[in-house]
Simulated scan of single mutants.
Amino acid sequence: MLSQYMEQIETLGLNLFFAAIFFFIGMAIHDVLKQGNVPKFGRFIVWLVLFLGCAGFIAKGIIQMSWEGSGIG
Rank of each mutant, 00 (worst) to 15 (best):
M1C: 12
L2Y: 13
L2G: 15
L2P: 07
S3R: 13
S3Y: 13
S3G: 04
S3T: 06
Q4V: 12
Q4L: 15
Q4C: 13
Q4H: 14
Y5R: 02
M6K: 09
E7T: 11
E7L: 10
E7H: 13
Q8I: 04
I9Y: 12
E10R: 01
L12R: 05
G13Y: 00
L14D: 00
L14G: 00
L14A: 06
N15D: 03
N15E: 01
L16S: 01
L16E: 01
F17M: 04
A19S: 06
A19E: 04
A20E: 04
A20G: 05
A20S: 12
F22A: 02
F22C: 02
F22K: 00
F23P: 03
F23T: 08
F23G: 02
F24L: 14
G26D: 12
A28V: 06
A28P: 08
I29F: 12
I29A: 15
I29K: 15
H30M: 10
D31I: 11
D31F: 15
V32R: 13
V32T: 11
L33F: 05
K34F: 10
Q35W: 06
Q35G: 06
Q35N: 13
Q35L: 06
Q35C: 04
G36H: 02
G36E: 05
N37A: 13
V38N: 03
V38C: 04
V38P: 08
V38M: 11
V38W: 02
F41M: 07
F41Y: 11
G42S: 07
G42M: 03
I45G: 08
V46K: 11
V46W: 06
V46G: 08
V49E: 01
V49H: 00
V49R: 02
L50I: 07
F51S: 14
L52E: 06
G53F: 07
C54H: 10
C54Q: 12
A55M: 07
A55K: 02
G56N: 10
I58R: 07
I58L: 15
I58V: 09
A59Q: 11
A59V: 05
A59H: 07
A59T: 09
K60V: 09
I62M: 05
I62W: 06
I63M: 09
I63S: 01
I63K: 02
I63T: 01
Q64L: 14
Q64H: 11
S66W: 13
S66Y: 10
G69W: 14
G71E: 07
G73I: 14
